[in-house]
Design a protein around this nucleic acid. Structure first.
Length: 485
RNA sequence: GGCGGGUUGGCGGAGAGGUUACGCAGCGGAUUGCAAAUCCGUGAAGACCGGUUCGAUUCCGGUACCCGCCUCCA
């Protein structure tokens, strides 16, 4: 069996991945807070860990991998949007408006992530469907002395968990010395964090032993991962910005609530995304959503290719240049492998991905391989379909496609953008060919050049050789602009 | 202030203590009426300063710069 190695943030080393139960592999990814369209940065963990999901399915069998990615649909930004809509005269109760907002956002999220070729996780739980589990977990933490209720709030007692800070490499004392913690009258210790907070009439709330209220930020992931994956599971992933405080708090809650388990055994964190060398931010004007890029005509497959060219543990820079390069590479690959049915990924790509998801290395290999296969394809183009050399080539191409598909690339369903527009240009080709033949005699190529220019303007690629004239409609093809015959 | 990540040729980016990475772009050539496509060839690197070593881009230390987290954040 393929040995997978992963960089475990918890131990800060690359470790051989050994699942608790190879028949029931479990992975949790912190999903989005569904208050608005996903921005480009939100998409990085989705794409990166989608590759991990695909790799695990290949190695352990698709039926044996359970991948959970949550939707956090309790949040003040969602509340704010709902309230703004109500004030603007929208129909329905605040709860209904909140629900509508999260439903709408989830639908967008699915559409956008589907466009990037990300497989849907096995389960996509919503926080609001697990309020009962959160309340039960919080009650247990109070009972065991790890949490306390005060003024309608429930807080986690950070000092009660000695390993607090182990994941992110900080100590409670250092952080307090940093003095950037919220001091609140209901806190025993400034580092304590909220498990439950009270809701007034203008906010969504659920009845609890501590009054009507709503959960704090971190508890939903602890409750859902426990309910769906158990007290111990294999992989927990997310952006590096979540390492503290979100994941640190998850660990504290989960390990104190379920001391019988070890919570997540391998922690994977992806580094952040930048745009043209700078942090993506609204103030710099370089902030955009996945949808913005798709609407601009950048195919999801191209976005995915760009993401995978950078190792997930390194900061990734999104640039137009990279998108252009990726597009070219994918067009070449798609034309090379047209009609080829995938078989099984090649050993080089499998080895690269198994080595802590070295997608950049895998793509690099494919770039090289694609070039070599392109040459072979040309050399063997004249051979009969059942010629041994031809069969060998077809096998290699099938392996190439399977390797790409292991990273979610060259999937047939994602290729619509690269397909050449359907058009019968044979009459134009014949006409151009005639003009050219005549020009060869007269040495006056002006009519040929004029027609060629018109074809180019219509988005048609013109190839002329001794063999004849070839017209290929390209991405910007517009039949209405074709020159008259 | 505390913690963490990064810095390889025009761009992306890999492996390896000593041998051309590779791809893209560029340049030169072939081919072409001209192009396109294709093919052949080719220059170019390891932020900076020290140390270890026969030898470092690769190991160690320091400096600079960039980025992130410490507050909502993927």
């Amino acid at each position: 069996m393929t040995e997978i190695r992963l960089h475990n943030t918890k131990t800060r080393t690359k470790e051989v991945f050994v699942p608790l139960d190879p028949q029931n592999l479990r992975m949790y990814l912190c999903g989005p807070t569904v208050y608005d369209r996903a921005h480009l940065g939100n998409a990085r963990p989705v794409v990166v860990f989608d590759v991990l999901f695909r790799l695990l399915r290949l190695v352990y069998g698709a039926a044996h991998v359970k991948y959970v990615r949550n939707f956090t649909d309790v949040d003040d930004k969602i509340n704010a949007t709902a309230r703004a809509r109500k004030e603007a005269g929208a129909e329905g109760t605040l709860e209904e408006l909140i629900r509508a907002r999260t439903e709408e956002t989830i639908a967008w999220y699915h559409a956008d992530m589907d466009a990037l070729g990300a497989l849907r996780p096995t389960l996509e739980p919503r926080a609001t469907d697990f309020i009962g589990a959160m309340i039960a977990m919080i009650a247990g933490l109070i009972e065991s002395g790890h949490a306390y209720a005060k003024d309608g709030h429930v807080l986690f007692r950070v000092r009660s968990y000695t390993n607090y800070g182990a994941l992110s490499g900080r100590s409670v004392d250092d952080m307090i010395a940093g003095a950037r913690v919220e001091v609140a009258p209901f806190k025993e210790d400034p580092m304590d964090f909220v498990l439950w907070k009270p809701s007034d009439a203008d906010l969504p709330g659920w009845d609890s032993p501590w009054g009507r209220g709503r959960p704090g930020w971190h508890i939903e992931c602890s409750a859902m991962s426990y309910e769906l994956l158990g007290a111990s599971f294999d992989i927990h992933a997310g952006g590096i910005d979540l390492q503290f405080p979100h994941h640190e708090n998850e660990i504290a809650q989960s390990c104190c609530a379920h001391p019988e388990g070890q919570f997540a055994r391998y922690w994977l964190h992806n580094e952040m995304l930048q745009v043209e060398g700078k942090k993506m931010s609204k103030s710099l004007g370089n902030f955009f959503t996945v949808r913005d890029l798709l609407d601009k005509g950048i195919p999801g497959e191209v976005i995915r290719f760009v993401f995978l060219q950078t190792h997930y543990t390194k900061p990734m820079d999104w640039t137009q240049r990279k998108a252009d390069d990726a597009k070219r590479a994918l067009l070449r690959w798609r034309s090379l492998t047209e009609g080829v049915i995938a078989t099984y990924p090649g050993p080089e790509v499998l080895a690269a991905l198994s080595d802590d998801l070295n997608t950049a290395g895998a793509l690099n290999f494919l770039q090289h391989q694609g070039q070599a296969l392109g040459q072979l394809a040309k050399e063997r183009a004249h051979l009969a379909a059942d010629h041994p050399e031809k069969l060998k080539l077809n096998e290699q191409l099938a392996e190439f496609v399977a390797s790409a598909q292991l990273m979610g690339l060259l999937e047939p369903a994602m290729g619509a953008w690269a397909a050449a527009p359907q058009a019968d240009l044979s009459a134009h080709a014949a006409r151009l060919s005639d003009l050219r033949a005549a020009a060869m005699e007269t040495k006056d190529f002006a009519p040929v050049d004029a027609m060629k220019a018109a074809l180019l303007a219509a988005g048609v690629e013109v190839r002329m050789s001794k063999a004849g004239v070839e017209l290929l409609p390209g991405a910007g093809f517009d039949a209405a602009k074709l020159p008259p015959l």
